[in-house]
Computed example of a mutant assay.
Amino acid sequence: MTRSKRTRPVGLAFKQELARIALDSICPLYAVQKETKETVKYTQIAASVREVGLVEPLVVTSDKSEPDNYMLLDGHLRHAILLDMGEKYALCQISTDDEAFTYNKRISRLATIQEHKMILMAVRRGVPEERLARALNINIKTLQEKRRLLDGICPEAAELLKDKQVTLTSFRILRKMKPLRQIEAAELMVTMNKYTVNYARSLLAATPESQLVNPDKPKASKGVSRQQLEMMERESANLERELRLVEDTYGTDHLDLVLARGYVSKLISNRRIARYLEMHHTEFMPEFEKITETEALTSRT
């Protein structure tokens, strides 16, 4: 029996070698506004580029209509900073895929963990800590803490939070938990889209002593009794179970609700059916009308 289809080779997403490309031949997808250039984050990146250089290359793809020109997929802030500095060339990574949305969806912006990795890379290249601190506009103590950011954090939790804006204090709190609990806490942060210090502290307070790195050391819970802590632990466990159930069925439930709402809307728009319901099932009409109004509002947003 012969095969009807041949296995297609998997192509590389990027060219293996970096290229030195003229900045004026790179076309950005959008212009960096003046308001953006006045933000703290932009100022930090600009200081880093001036002091350390370009740690991450720009990501470009060749313009199919003009092969000597390139479209900028990622690195718009760095591109604008280099132009403002009067630079003429930049090291670029050339993508074989020109879909910027697909690429950008998978990269991590200058989040806490990304900044940590950039600091480690710069230190390995021999950049002094004092120079790095000036580049990031922080003091030496904060820089050293950023270097040790993932000490005591399990790889799975770090992977979950790699592109999130999590504070240094939240990472300190996560270190007090054992690896499995760190993963649970990180999953809850991502699910709830909450990365604040207070939320991290509430997760720590709801963590059973058996899941703490140092269970003999009391958890900081001013004004909270032991009974309240135990209740929080039980509620936290119940919330996690409920979240798992919701995650498993959310897609199907949402599709069912959308289909049901559309069906009810069509029923109400039929005059004969509406008249029948008004005559024989008047209690249903107000609820059906609310569903129809909800659909109309949703379609307009």
Score class of each variant (00 low, 15 high):
residue 122 A to I: 07
residue 170 S to G: 07
residue 99 E to N: 14
residue 124 R to T: 08
residue 134 R to W: 03
residue 112 T to Q: 05
residue 163 D to K: 12
residue 198 N to D: 12
residue 130 E to T: 14
residue 176 K to P: 00
residue 200 A to Y: 07
residue 174 L to F: 10
residue 212 L to Q: 10
residue 214 N to V: 12
residue 151 D to L: 12
residue 124 R to H: 11
residue 217 K to R: 14
residue 140 I to R: 14
residue 215 P to H: 14
residue 117 K to V: 07
residue 217 K to H: 09
residue 184 E to G: 00
residue 180 L to D: 11
residue 121 M to G: 00
residue 188 L to K: 04
residue 143 L to Q: 06
residue 187 E to S: 06
residue 145 E to I: 10
residue 186 A to N: 02
residue 200 A to D: 01
residue 100 A to N: 07
residue 171 F to L: 10
residue 109 R to V: 13
residue 205 A to Q: 14
residue 145 E to T: 08
residue 152 G to E: 09
residue 197 V to W: 11
residue 147 R to M: 15
residue 189 M to N: 00
residue 105 K to M: 14
residue 217 K to V: 13
residue 125 R to Y: 05
residue 153 I to H: 05
residue 180 L to S: 08
residue 178 K to E: 14
residue 161 L to C: 05
residue 205 A to D: 03
residue 164 K to G: 00
residue 118 M to L: 11
residue 183 I to K: 04
residue 156 E to W: 11
residue 143 L to K: 08
residue 115 E to L: 15
residue 87 E to P: 00
residue 83 L to T: 08
residue 171 F to K: 05
residue 127 V to E: 09
residue 172 R to F: 10
residue 190 V to F: 01
residue 119 I to D: 00
residue 149 L to T: 03
residue 216 D to R: 15
residue 170 S to E: 10
residue 205 A to P: 00
residue 199 Y to T: 11
residue 110 L to I: 12
residue 131 R to M: 13
residue 97 D to R: 13
residue 93 Q to D: 04
residue 98 D to V: 06
residue 172 R to D: 14
residue 181 R to Y: 05
residue 116 H to V: 05
residue 181 R to A: 13
residue 125 R to I: 04
residue 131 R to S: 10
residue 153 I to T: 07
residue 164 K to W: 00
residue 206 A to R: 02
residue 215 P to S: 13
residue 111 A to F: 06
residue 163 D to M: 09
residue 203 L to F: 04
residue 199 Y to A: 02
residue 195 Y to F: 15
residue 168 L to A: 04
residue 208 P to V: 12
residue 193 N to E: 13
residue 150 L to K: 08
residue 84 D to K: 08
residue 200 A to T: 03
residue 138 I to M: 15
residue 185 A to W: 00
residue 174 L to C: 08
residue 93 Q to G: 03
residue 149 L to G: 01
residue 126 G to K: 12
residue 195 Y to S: 03
residue 177 M to S: 09
residue 166 V to K: 02
residue 164 K to E: 09
residue 169 T to D: 11
residue 116 H to I: 07
residue 84 D to H: 06
residue 175 R to P: 00
residue 176 K to Y: 04
